[in-house]
Amino acid sequence: MISFKSVGKRYGGFEALKHVSFSIKKGEMVFVAGHSGAGKSTLLKLLAAIERPTSGSIHLGDQDIGRLKQSAIPYLRRKLGLVFQDHKLLYNRTVFENVALPLQISSFDPRESASRIRAALDKVGLLGREKSRPVELSGGEQQRLCIARAIVNRPSILIADEPTGNLDSEYSEVIMDMFRSFNQVGVTLLISTHDEAMLEKLKPRIITLHQGELAS
């Protein structure tokens, strides 16, 4: 479903990724591990076409993401659920409105969207907080809100960049349980983390990066 072929990414003189090749099958849950600066975020950004590769090719299905036209990128991103390390929530909108945004963007029928939004909030345990503003939420709740926004469109692929980065282990586990339940209903997940304790416990498939290269 997802395949990287000898992908490289250079920022000026700095090589963030070097000859990275791997592929992920539909329905897999894969972790990208490595230290800070190893290239984990870059790898995820390339998949969502937030960055373009300097060399190599990235395919999602039969789409060549590196060569996607600017005007086609929005439609690629609608197929993906993106969870950001810094949440990227809108602080002047309510929890409900934040989750509504992807549906508005894809011109989803407004009459049906309310139930979709509540379902997504229910899955992340924020159903009672619809009218709150993101600032009123704790860090873990904000991360869950970001996840609710990522899944409200029911994407087949979920990409999460350090979703448990700033959370204590208890919260991390709640979020990992959520991801596992998405995986059980067939969602493909690509999650970056540097939380080795968790990887130890879950024993998932891991792609390890070391200074921009795949470590075997």
């Binding site: 937030i50 005007s71 929005p74 950001f84 990227k88 809108l90 602080y91 945004l101 894809s106």
Partner: peptide
Amino acid sequence: KDEIEVAKLIGATNTF
């Protein structure tokens, strides 16, 4: 600015 950035990240077209 933030709204525009987020909207673009989650698949908003320029028209939107």
